[in-house]
Design a protein around this nucleic acid. Structure first.
Lengths: 209, 209
DNA sequence: TTCTATAATGACAAAATGTCACATTAACGA
DNA sequence: TCGTTAATGTGACATTTTGTCATTATAGAA
């Protein structure tokens, strides 16, 4: 977490840092990013950087938080819009996400984020704040799920299902970026179809009987 | 890929390198690994390292290949043992994998591998060689799947399903290591149950009716 | 023995990171 | 207005790491 010193900075200066973060983390992954380049772009002395952040990671997660807070996509909103239908909510959420991630102004950042996302940091860059709380029976998210449509009941099961659904979503987006990087063109329609296929399997099962 | 020079080395010297790789990549993740420490441990001059490998990654994937080749676990074997039942094969495979990954001599290496696995490198460290070829209709793996049990037919669909199943498996193992690192004890039995839950959902669907 | 291609070696330049002693500013009471 | 104190700004620096390269050693063929 950034120090209080950072948050006490003028909006303009904070923004310079965030802009520099955007630039560098869009250029390369977190690991390849250079603090030297960031302080240069932000126009601040090297020492100051360490007064605000402990390291690259600190700035990275700060920037990803900033992005999340300035994005209106929320799984909870989708859930409300679909009257508690979890699968419908994920379909809706997926559509808004792809639009944002593939054509939005932060596409390059998200691409690096996805291609380099690990289990270790997946918690920290959780796209939806809901994820973190879904497994709590008293969360806002849990309260909005229509369980009569599902073969599950406990909050723990919901948490697990959410993880599977999220990793299916990540899988689809990740494979998009991967193929894009290997110059194998993929259309958004194909992506939709692949995610739909996966959701269908989870909804109705793959086994015959 | 390592140079031919590396493979021309005496077995003993190759092994020194692989042992050093094992040591360093068990200590820390690929990104945190230090070439300096590796050459020190292997007792070779720095320059030689670059004569054999282009960089850390090169050695890493070389070592992970080496591990795979010296491991008898194979999804294909499981598939044959279960007479083409894909889900049963994954259950079987999962059991052998957890034993190997959690208690085997390379547990520390696998832990770092899993916690830091990304979409970008997931292809290169594919645990099973079969994964890479599953989507080819003429692959050995494809030929052994009993499709009469499944609602799928094309090789492309099989490839997608394999990815989902693999990412469910990774998800389960990844969450194990993550919780372990946060000192939340997890038993192998719990892990089995979680994977079983997920497989059940994929087999029979989560939606009611 | 001499020649030649292949491999070994470690000193080195370049780049990056995190720290620290010192300079600057702001805040506030006398 | 001034002076004291706490907070913040600054960049030079030590350290570490990486990849390169000129030079040396080695082994097999002629």
């Amino acid at each position: 977490m950034p120090t209080s010193t950072f948050f006490n900075l003028s909006q303009a200066k904070q923004q310079r840092l965030l802009d520099a973060a955007h630039q560098e983390f869009s250029r390369v992954s977190l690991h390849e990013a250079s603090i030297s380049k960031i302080v240069l772009a932000a126009g601040i002395p090297r020492g100051s950087f360490y007064q605000y952040f402990t390291d690259k990671e600190d700035l990275y997660y700060c920037y990803s938080d900033y992005l999340r807070q300035h994005t209106k996509n929320s799984l909870l909103d989708s859930l409300k819009a679909t009257e508690g239908d979890l699968f419908a909510a994920f379909r809706r959420y997926f559509t808004t996400l792809t639009a944002e991630f593939i054509n939005g102004p932060n596409a390059a950042f998200y691409k690096n984020m996805f291609l380099n996302m690990t289990y270790k940091n997946s918690r920290k860059v959780a796209l939806s704040t809901q994820m973190k709380h879904a497994h709590h029976g008293h969360s806002d998210f849990y309260a909005n799920v229509d369980f009569s449509r599902l073969k599950i009941s406990t909050a723990h099961e919901l948490g697990m299902l959410m993880h599977i659904l999220m990793s299916a979503l990540f899988q689809t987006l990740g494979s998009y970026y991967l193929r894009q990087q290997h110059d194998e063109p993929v259309t958004v329609a194909q992506l939709d179809q692949e995610f739909e296929q996966t959701l269908g399997w989870l909804e109705h099962g793959v086994a015959i009987n």
